[in-house]
Nucleic acid binder design. Structure first.
Lengths: 225, 225
DNA sequence: ATCGTATTTTAGGCAAACCTAGAAAATTTT
DNA sequence: AAAATTTTCTAGGTTTGCCTAAAATACGAT
């Protein structure tokens, strides 16, 4: 397969790579392919950058295998994630941003902002440990709260669960869920789980039923009650 | 004279040049020398950048002469100044930044922020038309309020004046003045103006006298009452 | 196990900003 | 007005990050 031609000359840079490696890999190994699509960058750029990140000691990288974070890299990634989530929270709660604009703005801001700024924002927000999507905000000391959540898609009929967190940054889904009041904290009862298409039907606290497609259900993280 | 060696590989970029040209030149012509020191960049870089800015139609540039802003360049510069001043105001009033840290943080932020962000901040602040130093904030439409102010250093004994604005971004002076309550809005009576060293002595509303060195007095802009 | 396809890497380039060194123009001094 | 000095410009380099094209490796299917 011929590699598709890239268009925009946008800049990503070290931090974004770290966040991306952290993103889906967690403790595991991120494939260049994944990073390439995640960062909208050619795989050639990924190779090159991974080599550099390794030299910087932020990543462990084996050619043709992929990369995983070193302790230092993980710390740096968490620092950025903290920034990102605090900034998002701030944009939503203090500047009245709509969901769909938050992520992009935060993405740009987090590169410009100092730790000083970040901590002042944290203070302004009352040192939250979750952002509005329910995603945990790493502590200033690099701690990340463990969360024992499972995707709603794996629930069984009759389960009563509380929404801990919704999806990643994909806007349309977020908006859809928010419109239905399916936000972190909400308690649901699972009415039906269809095996074929993965559609999950739930009833909320007000007795209203909602049917969620498989992908959506998988991006809603819950904890049993 | 041999050109001094530069050290830090910091980045400045188009916007900073525009602001710098606007800075002291206003409608006039900014000399490369001035830009070089203002931006902490070698004069070689200035030459190169001015050529680029001219190609972009933001600046009128004649080699060995200097550069002045085109209409478009001026608009762009004002947009950045607006951002900068709004962000500074926000940092001071909402995040509790101390004076000495504001400028640097704002300088970095103004490159990352969108117009959307800027206008939301403006709204949060109640659309101020002056920043905390008393500097006018250009309007979203590119308007800049005229101010008929004169430097305090040019006042005569006996004058009663109101402080409209203090200095530029040089921190030590700002702190000094603020400690003495010499901030925008304050009303003063000029007690003495010494010709030799330019020291101006004023009495404030509480009857306290302050002696200001020539440079300081020149950076306090006032309007007669 | 091998062939074909998909993924990754290498090689070679480009653009933005900045730098140093040294040449050219302007300005100031004698 | 010529010399000396200062300022500005030109030339040639560096770094960062990204790209395309083509070579190398891995993987999946027969």
């Amino acid at each position: 397969m011929v590699e598709p031609k890239m268009s925009q000359p946008l800049s990503s840079s070290v931090g974004d790579y770290l966040k991306a490696v952290w993103g889906l890999a967690g403790p595991g190994v991120a494939a260049p392919k994944y990073l390439s699509s995640r960062l909208s960058v050619s795989s050639a750029s990924v190779s090159e950058m991974l080599r550099r990140l390794q030299e910087l000691g932020l990543v462990e990288y084996e050619r043709y295998r992929g990369a995983s974070l070193t302790e230092e890299g993980r710390a740096e990634a968490l620092r950025l994630v903290r920034r990102h989530r605090l900034i998002e929270t701030f944009l939503l709660e203090h500047l009245g941003y709509p969901w769909e604009e938050v992520h992009e703005e935060a993405e740009r801001l987090e590169h410009a902002v100092s730790d000083n700024f970040t901590e002042r924002v944290a203070q302004l927000l009352g040192h939250p440990d979750r952002d509005p999507h329910g995603a945990p905000i790493p502590g200033a000391d690099g701690t990340l709260a463990r969360e024992d959540s499972r995707p709603l898609s794996g629930a069984s009929v009759g389960d009563r669960v509380r929404i801990l967190r919704v999806g990643r940054e994909d806007t349309p889904a977020l908006t859809h869920l928010q419109d239905r009041g399916l936000v972190p904290g909400r308690v649901l009862r699972v009415e039906e789980v269809r095996g074929l298409d993965g559609v999950v039907t739930v009833e909320d606290e007000d007795g209203v039923s909602h049917a969620l497609g498989g992908v959506l259900a998988a991006s809603v993280l819950v904890r049993g009650l």
